[in-house]
């Protein structure tokens, strides 16, 4: 029993420090001025939150999430469903922001997060629509 306890304890330490490291790395990268690190940082942040959500149903070992007659106990299945939804959504969002930063890079030739404006930027601003198209 004590080996199980120590496994859970070390797993808790591993998970907690892993979430912390991922979050810290993500936040650091988001602060950078280039679009690529920002995108990577956002991905790190979403990995961190996925692992965080997963651990929110409490950490258990060798327990099934679905009803079974032989089960001694259960692990919480709901966080797993939440993580699945979160993964799908952040995957779509990341794809979108990758396309946006690529488009910005192709249009301006720079991957600065301010997407350095073209000289005709004021014209498109003034007419309130996409004059650059």
């Amino acid at each position: 029993m004590s080996t199980v306890m120590s496994t859970v304890m070390s797993m808790e330490f591993l998970l907690a420090s892993g979430i912390g490291a991922l979050t810290a790395a993500g936040l650091y990268l988001i602060m950078l001025r280039r679009t690529f690190p920002v995108v990577i940082g956002l991905s790190f942040l979403s990995y961190a939150v996925n692992v965080f959500l997963f651990s929110m149903g409490r950490l258990t070992i060798d327990l099934p999430p679905i009803v079974s007659e032989a089960a001694k106990g259960y692990t919480d299945p709901l966080p797993q469903a939440l993580v699945l939804t979160a993964i799908v959504i952040t995957f779509g969002m990341t794809a979108l922001i990758v396309v946006l930063s690529l488009r910005g890079f192709l249009e301006t030739g720079s991957d600065d997060v301010t997407l350095q404006a073209q000289p005709d930027d004021d014209a498109s601003r003034a007419s309130g629509d996409g004059a650059a198209r």
């Binding site: 988001i30 679009t35 920002v38 956002l42 969002m93 979108l96 922001i97 946006l100 930063s101 488009r103 910005g104 249009e107 301006t108 997060v113 301010t114 997407l115 404006a117 073209q118 930027d121 498109s124 601003r125 629509d129 996409g130 004059a131 650059a132 198209r133």
Partner: peptide, 14 residues
């Protein structure tokens, strides 16, 4: 589209 919209869009999505 348009560059100004793209820039604001990147920040908005982020």
């Amino acid at each position: 589209g348009g560059p100004r919209r793209l820039k604001a869009g990147f920040h908005y999505v982020a």
